[in-house]
Every structure is written in C-alpha cells, then in structure tokens.
Amino acid sequence: MLRFGTQLGRQASCTKLRVSAMPAFGKTLQLVTRKMTQQRPPVDFTTSIRTKSAKDNEKITGLGWFLLLIPATTFGLGCWQVKRKIWKEQLIEELNGQLSQPPAPLPEDLSDLSHMEYRLVKIRGRFLHDKEMRMGPRSLIRPDGVETQGGLISQRDSGNGYLIVTPFQLSDRNDIVLINRGWVSRKQVEPETRALGQPKGELELTAVVRKGEARPQFTPDHKDGKVYLYRDLTRMCAATGAAPVFLDATYDAKSAQHGPVGGQTRVTLRNDHLSYLITWFSLSAATSFLWYRQIVKRIPF
C-alpha cells in the first residue's frame, strides 16, 4: 500500500510539471513562428503567372508572314490573266482583220503558208471530185457569221451536216491542195444529190489558209478514209496525195445554190481568261480576309 501510494504521488507530480510546462512551450512556439514569419519575404502571386501584353498580340510570327504568300500569289496570277486576256483579244482582232484584207497570191513555196493562217489567198485549178471527203458532223455558219444549231426536228436538215473537203489540182504547178468547199446538209452528203454543184472545169477560188488540228480529247478515231472528225491533215494528205495545205473556201452565193455553202471559217482561239481572272481575284480576296482575321486580329472561328 505504501509502495502504491508512492507511485501515485510520483505520477501526480509529473502531470503537474507537464501542465506547468505547456504554457512555456506554447510561448516558445509562438516566438519561433513569429520570427519565421518576419524573416520570410511576402509572396507576390501576380508575378508568378505571365500575361500577354498588347504588344505581343500585335506581333506577327514568321508563319503568319509566310501565309501571306497565298493571297499575294493568287493576286499576281489574277493580274497575269488580265494581261493574257488583253493579248488574246488583240490577237483575235488581228486574225479577224486578216479575213477582211485583199487576197494574196499563193506563194511559190507552199511551206510559207504555215505562217499565213487566216490569210486570204487566190488559187486557180480544178477539183478532183473522185477523192472527195467529208468532215463532221458540223453546224452551218451562215454568211452573217451566225452559227445555226441543229438538233430540233424542224432544224435537223438546216443545222446539222458535214463539211465537204475536196483535193484541188493547181493549174500553174503540179501540186494538189485540200479545199474545204463548205457545208452541206445530211441529205446532200452524197455527190449525186448535188450534181449541179460539182464543177468540172478550171475555176478561180478565194480561200482562207488554215492549219491542221491535233486530235481533241475524248474524240474517237475516224470511221473510215472518207469521214473525218477533225482536220487530220496527215491522214487526209496521205489518202489523197495532196500537199499539207488546207484552205477554207469563202462564201459564194452562186455556188451555194446547188453545192456546199462556203464561208465556214471561224477564228477558233480559246479565250477563257475572263473566268480565270475572276477565279484568282476571288481566291485572293477570300484568303486576304482570312489572313487579316486570323493573323492580324486573332479572331477565332
């Protein structure tokens, strides 16, 4: 009992010492915390996150300048098509002007005709009707220059037919050239149906110098040696023994009464530059707007 009382007395004294020491330890902890707080510099949370300034927003990167090449290039192509359109229209006007010039004599060297397309020339000789060919089908070009479109039942005979190509023996030399005599309807394709329009003797003609044609895309091969789909000068000359010269006869009201209708020459130069320049300028305007919106103003879609 005495030993148990002694132990209780020791535990009580230790508890008093701990309780009495707690205020001192708390004060010491408060002093240490206060010193650490005073020594630590204040944290500025506003400088830890970097914000973009207005100057950064105005700056255009290298990629942005590179993308500017798209509207600049399309604008340059549009300007180039404007020049091409002006040049092509002048060329067509010059070629049409050649058709109104006085006819020139046929040169001694027939190879000179390769530089005289759409020039009027005078020739004299006779037709070789036994080697006649036809080219087409083609629509009729009236003397006023208007093309008659075929296809309707009421216009089938007057708007759809063939061009009659006949070898022509020159009278002043031993050369044969090909003459596109003009247009005939389907009912007059065979020579027997237009016997009055097949002159036998020597005559003088005014014709337009033309060149051969390359085979158009998607055009099938010729059916036989008498029907041609385009001016295949190589095969036509090989079949008839003619020189590589192709001439379009001009319109003659007298011969057109019973035979082919001449004057079937058209200045066939493709002029699509207007649609091209509209396309390029439209692309330039669209890409310029997108570049300004995305690169300069930084406006998202």
Rank of each mutant, 00 (worst) to 15 (best):
T46D: 12
L8R: 14
E147K: 09
L205H: 03
G197F: 02
S111H: 12
K254F: 07
S255L: 13
A72K: 02
S53C: 00
R50L: 03
Q198H: 00
D248I: 02
R194T: 03
K85N: 14
R142H: 10
K55M: 02
T37M: 13
E213R: 12
V19M: 04
Q149Y: 02
T61N: 02
L95G: 08
F281C: 11
M236P: 07
R186E: 13
V32Y: 07
R18V: 15
L113C: 09
V32I: 10
P244Y: 10
L113Y: 11
F301C: 05
F75H: 00
D248M: 08
G64L: 00
R119Q: 14
A104Q: 15
F168P: 06
R181H: 04
L113N: 09
R119L: 07
V32S: 10
K297W: 04
L63A: 09
L68T: 04
T28Y: 10
T28G: 09
Q198S: 05
G26Q: 13
V32A: 13
I60S: 02
R293I: 03
L205Q: 07
N160K: 11
G9T: 11
W183D: 06
T265A: 11
E117N: 14
E132D: 06
V82A: 13
K35H: 15
E147M: 14
Q81T: 04
L128R: 09
Q39F: 09
A12P: 00
A242R: 01
L8V: 11
G150C: 08
S288M: 00
S100D: 14
F127M: 05
E94S: 15
D44M: 03
L163P: 01
Q11T: 08
K223M: 13
K122R: 15
K211R: 15
R215S: 12
A285E: 00
A24Y: 10
Q198F: 00
G197S: 04
V296F: 01
A21P: 01
K16F: 11
S111M: 08
H258F: 15
K83T: 08
Q11F: 09
G26S: 08
F289M: 02
S284H: 00
G26H: 12
M236G: 07
G201C: 02
S284K: 01
R50P: 03
S255H: 09
V209C: 03
I70G: 01
K88Y: 06
T240F: 03
A243F: 01
P143Q: 15
W291R: 00
G259D: 06
K59G: 01
Q294C: 07
T51P: 00
T6L: 11
I86S: 09
P167W: 07
S111K: 14
K59H: 00
I92S: 12
A207H: 02
G145R: 11
R210N: 04
W65P: 02
V146H: 07
Q149R: 11
L91R: 13
T61P: 02
R235V: 01
Q169G: 01
G182W: 08
K200V: 06
E192R: 04
S284T: 02
M116K: 15
R181Q: 09
K200W: 00
Q264R: 13
G64S: 04
I123G: 06
K16M: 11
K200C: 05
P23D: 07
V165E: 04
A242V: 01
G182C: 03
L69P: 01
Q98E: 13
